[in-house]
Amino acid sequence: MIKTALIISLFLVAAIRAADESQAETTKYRNEIKPDGSYSWEYGTSNGIDAQESGVGGVQAAGSVSYAAPDGTPIQLEYTADENGYRPTGAHLPTPPPIPDYILKALAYIEAHPFQRIQLKK
């Protein structure tokens, strides 16, 4: 009985300690800013967060971040931001459902039969 209680107690202490991320420390850090406006940075923490980014200030950026979700699932996010907007990618992100066939057929028909504009007289 005492052994079981001891094992359960140790398990609970380990679980509580693992859940407390307030004691996480920075394990790596790098930050570079160049005169031409380009930059890069990266950091890592003792609780498994790693992130990095490089780009040109106000023009474009690309980077990634990885960490463990609260349920323990590894999360890996990569992103690009430029004149086309912010585009993240990652297996954990939701994806839209496929476009139904009838919509694809309707779009193909519209493209094949463009609408003739009518000019009204004033």
Results as ranks from 00 to 15, higher is better:
60 Q>M: 07
10 L>F: 09
66 S>E: 03
57 G>M: 02
72 G>H: 02
52 Q>Y: 11
49 I>K: 13
102 Y>F: 13
93 L>N: 09
89 T>A: 06
65 V>N: 06
110 I>A: 09
30 R>K: 05
93 L>G: 14
61 A>E: 03
118 I>Y: 10
21 E>W: 14
46 S>D: 09
40 S>R: 05
71 D>Q: 10
18 A>L: 13
102 Y>P: 07
16 I>A: 11
2 I>Q: 15
9 S>D: 07
94 P>Q: 10
83 E>G: 04
97 P>F: 10
41 W>S: 04
85 G>C: 03
78 E>A: 07
37 G>Y: 01
103 I>N: 09
89 T>E: 06
9 S>F: 11
2 I>R: 15
94 P>K: 15
72 G>R: 07
10 L>Y: 04
24 A>L: 13
110 I>L: 10
98 P>A: 06
53 E>G: 00
37 G>S: 04
42 E>R: 06
12 L>W: 09
72 G>D: 09
107 L>D: 12
34 K>P: 07
12 L>E: 05
40 S>F: 02
53 E>K: 00
33 I>G: 13
14 A>E: 03
45 T>M: 04
67 Y>S: 11
106 A>R: 06
63 G>Q: 01
22 S>Q: 10
10 L>M: 08
28 K>P: 15
4 T>I: 04
84 N>I: 01
37 G>C: 03
32 E>L: 08
18 A>P: 12
80 T>R: 00
8 I>N: 15
13 V>A: 15
54 S>I: 00
80 T>A: 00
29 Y>F: 11
105 K>W: 12
94 P>R: 13
20 D>Q: 12
85 G>H: 04
107 L>N: 15
10 L>C: 08
28 K>C: 11
59 V>H: 02
63 G>N: 05
75 I>A: 05
61 A>P: 01
51 A>W: 04
115 F>G: 12
62 A>F: 00
59 V>K: 02
23 Q>G: 08
93 L>F: 03
104 L>I: 08
48 G>V: 06
49 I>M: 11
91 A>K: 12
